[in-house]
Design a protein around this nucleic acid. Sequence first.
DNA 1: CAAATCGGTGGAATCGATTCCATGAAATCG
DNA 2: CGATTTCATGGAATCGATTCCACCGATTTG
Lengths: 338, 338
Amino acid sequence: MRGVTIRDVAARAGVSPATASRVLSGNPATSALSRERVEQAVAELGFRPNAQARSLRSTRTSTIGLLISDVRNPFFADLAHAAEQQALELGLITLLANANESVEQQNRYLDVLLAQRVDGLILVPQGGDNANVEMLASSGLPAVFVDRVIDNIDLPSVTADNSSGMGEAVQHLAELGHRRIGYISGPRSASTGRERFAAFQAATLACGLEQDPELVVFGDFQAGSGAAGARQLLELSNAPSALIAADGLMTMGAVRVCQELGIRIGEDLSLVGYDDIDAFAIMRPALTLIAQDADEMGRTAVRLLHQVIAGQKPEPVVLPTRLMVRKSTGPVKTGVNR
Amino acid sequence: MRGVTIRDVAARAGVSPATASRVLSGNPATSALSRERVEQAVAELGFRPNAQARSLRSTRTSTIGLLISDVRNPFFADLAHAAEQQALELGLITLLANANESVEQQNRYLDVLLAQRVDGLILVPQGGDNANVEMLASSGLPAVFVDRVIDNIDLPSVTADNSSGMGEAVQHLAELGHRRIGYISGPRSASTGRERFAAFQAATLACGLEQDPELVVFGDFQAGSGAAGARQLLELSNAPSALIAADGLMTMGAVRVCQELGIRIGEDLSLVGYDDIDAFAIMRPALTLIAQDADEMGRTAVRLLHQVIAGQKPEPVVLPTRLMVRKSTGPVKTGVNR
DNA sequence: CAAATCGGTGGAATCGATTCCATGAAATCG
DNA sequence: CGATTTCATGGAATCGATTCCACCGATTTG
């Protein structure tokens, strides 16, 4: 039944709307009799409170928004799943929105979620046009960044240490004898893209490896760009003997290209992926990768947001990343070129 | 700025709230002068209309809900992504919710989305306790089923033909000489689980294969149950020479177990997966699988919902499925047992 | 025993935008 | 030129729940 209001319920229960409202919101100032009669009326009429009207008055929705970058990226899917479960435990409902790695779309959803008056917002910022994000930050709505941040905007955040895992990876490859490592970077507009790239550069420098600009290509964190980047690097006249890709989807694209080109991963070419995606464990050879804990990141983001909603100002959290050595990396073979 | 209302805007622009509202909603009955002044006031104050108040009065939110089964399942992630893009094209904003393969969670989100007064709802029903879904159907809120349906509830739907692809798969295995095919089924509570299983049984019967009940195990469409199921089947004294798993995540679980047990897929064991997931194409051996078009399903669901919102009653749509033969299936080897 | 306290209640104001209705000025018509 | 239509506008009612405030009968307290 649509259109059943609290007045109908009150009328049927023989009480005032005020009392009916009190019963429904668990206000203790109600008699057992009213409670019983209201509950029965609710059941009989199939009453469904209008959240719009409710939160218009009470300015609480018990709903949080989670604006992620890309649902199809398993890293964000895992993060979203963990966040949502954690939110449920705290009595919060999560509305998920997908920016699809696009600032325009991000801004559009930002508008919607703000207009829906969520109690708080967890955001993977896209970079680029930050006007809406700045508006968000200055609006006073509880909000936290997750995975990525925007430099001049001061919001609590959960990020991963984009440097240590990358450092381990480069060192691991260097120890295997690789001197030319190709790097498929994320976009410079994303903080993760920039930080991982900086870490890569710092590590290759520290290990005394070649720093040829030709060895770096920039993608957009989606599979297609990983494939294009890998192809470009592998077709260099002086092709690298190892490749690092800066996120899970670009890694998948790179793997696909290797297979198309008939390059044997782990033998002809060493490949280090990013993100501990289930699929990477069952690939053959199993992928060596830089792992970050998506679940923990999602849960932490919700906890931080919960603190912000409670009026606190939590410190930024940085989670560790680490190299997981599996079978896609091996000693460099001399004279190998495709 | 929070707390800027349309009255503030109206005051600053020197018009009434009524006129300000008309300007904002594009009502033609406004003068160029008012329009200009209101727009300037909006910009200066950073006004953000309260969607709650707006849709409380106008009962339209331009928002649809998409309640999927599991964000971490790439099939649903693809479906959600495609749906969301299609919705955007139609001027609708998608709020995503994740039932996590749980009826309780589904019902909870159903409540929330209804309370948020979305204009329509796309639902992958969980099966089990249908009370809330029945309520939804009888509430008159535009809604469509996608991927799964519930038998006695008459809502428009987009599903896949769960039978033809499965039939092809069984026949393909039969032609390769397999007589004992293990089946890792989805839950009987889901229509897809039931239909695929029925198709499997029908096909094995038609091909004259063994119909040993031991060859069937039931999972829950998540990876863990696929792994457990595969282990159980492969440890049978009279183990099957081929396996079919009824969804993508269970397929991944099965692959993992094969690797743990040292079984060579495509040689010692033929494996047919479900869903055309990117990862399955780059696995070695590449997986033979039953493909359905998640993107098309997502887009169609939104289109149907759009029609329902417009007052039409669209016919159910059934999309094709088909077998994609790759490298994980091969001729049965005599005397093979682990 | 009068006064203070308290639990339960209803009436009415409220949240912020939309929209119905009435109004007055300008434009059009016979 | 008076009558009528058009157009933009403001005032006030409205959407549905929450909550402030006042009240009343019953209990407790000095």
